[in-house]
């Protein structure tokens, strides 16, 4: 078997093991949350009998392991259970939310990744000179400002002062694409600013690290243009660390958008999670946790696989 197939299979297997471990942690974590689900559903005035009946109905009296296995097998079949608070099917209501979040994250990624890498390449080309310093200063600033503040700043200028984009990102099914894009313009802007600095700086650092190599001197002694050297000789050897940080930020775009979604009242996963944590709706919290974990692990696994594929020693063994 080609070693690369083995390596990739190992990574995928490892990812599944990790996901399984994460599911245990999520389940265990929600179990030790204070409060009683039955109590929170029926309210303070419920009788002991009513509480006991509801607990039996929800299966809360079964042993922990049984409940975990039931939950996991159902989740594997796509059944994430029903929300305690409104009795709706979680998979259905979450599906739409997840779609919205992925839409937002996808556009943010589509803009931020090429931008970050291009800016990183430019920063390396002019390392230590003013374009490098300018890029570093601007991206560091946007990274350093808390995202809710960034959100309110862009809202103040772009929505209130200049009236270019709406301040509340309402989207609904069947909305035309352009309207949708108009609606999410501001949160996308904030997300890009939040992740750009990290990706750009890591790209710069990874390529600068490669620029120390002897083969870069060979390229210089071939009389190649500085940007050709960076693009053809340095960048291909810096792919692994760059992909890693890109994936980390993509995961953040999906998992970490809670604050931005709340600021812009965007109907995504973050809003959904926050709403149901407040209501102690344990099945929803568990389901969200599981989806977030899957996204996180999946993207990191993808990063590992790309890093393996980018390594010529693994791709072309002796």
């Amino acid at each position: 078997m080609h070693p690369i197939v083995k390596f990739v299979a190992q990574r995928i297997l490892l990812g599944l093991v990790l996901l399984f471990a994460a599911s245990i942690m999520i389940f265990a974590g929600t179990q030790i949350l204070p409060g009683d689900v039955a109590q929170s559903i029926l309210g303070q005035s419920a009788t002991e009998q009513a509480l006991a009946n509801l607990r039996a109905e929800l299966g809360l009296n079964d042993p922990l392991v049984t409940r975990y296995l039931d939950w996991l097998t159902a989740a594997l079949q796509g059944d994430l259970g029903t929300a305690l608070t409104n009795g709706q099917d979680i998979a259905t209501s979450m599906g739409q939310r997840l779609g919205n979040t992925l839409f937002l994250a996808g556009w943010a990624a589509l803009i931020s990744i090429p931008l970050a890498i291009t800016l990183g390449l430019i920063a390396v080309r002019y390392a230590g000179k003013w374009p490098d310093k300018l890029i570093s200063a601007v991206t560091l600033t946007t990274v350093s400002i808390p995202e809710f503040l960034l959100g309110y700043i862009v809202m103040f200028y772009f929505a209130v002062q200049w009236r270019l984009f709406p301040s509340v990102s309402t989207v609904y099914d069947g909305m035309p694409l352009l309207d949708k894009l108009n609606a999410i313009a501001l949160p996308v802007m904030v997300l890009v600013m939040v992740v750009l600095g990290h990706m750009m700086r890591m790209t710069r650092a990874a390529i600068l690290n490669v620029m120390q190599s002897a083969y870069i001197e060979t390229a210089e002694l071939k009389g190649l243009r500085p940007f050709t050297i960076i693009r053809k000789h340095a960048f291909p050897n810096a792919i692994a660390p760059i992909v890693n940080v890109v994936m980390l930020n993509m995961a953040y775009l999906v998992v970490g958008v809670v604050v931005v979604e709340v600021v812009f009242v965007y109907p995504g996963m973050g809003q959904y999670l926050v709403d149901h944590v407040a209501k102690r709706d344990v099945p929803v919290v568990q389901a969200c946790g599981l989806v977030f974990a899957a996204v996180y692990i999946g993207l990191n696994m993808l990063a590992d696989v790309i890093a393996i594929l980018a390594n010529p020693r693994l791709r072309h063994p002796k």
């Binding site: 190599s213 002897a214 083969y215 001197e217 060979t218 390229a219 053809k232 000789h233 291909p236 050897n237 980018a310 010529p312 020693r313």
Partner: peptide, 8 residues
């Protein structure tokens, strides 16, 4: 060994 680009 060090002077050739390992990726090309």
């Amino acid at each position: 060994a060090a002077s050739f680009n390992p990726a090309r």
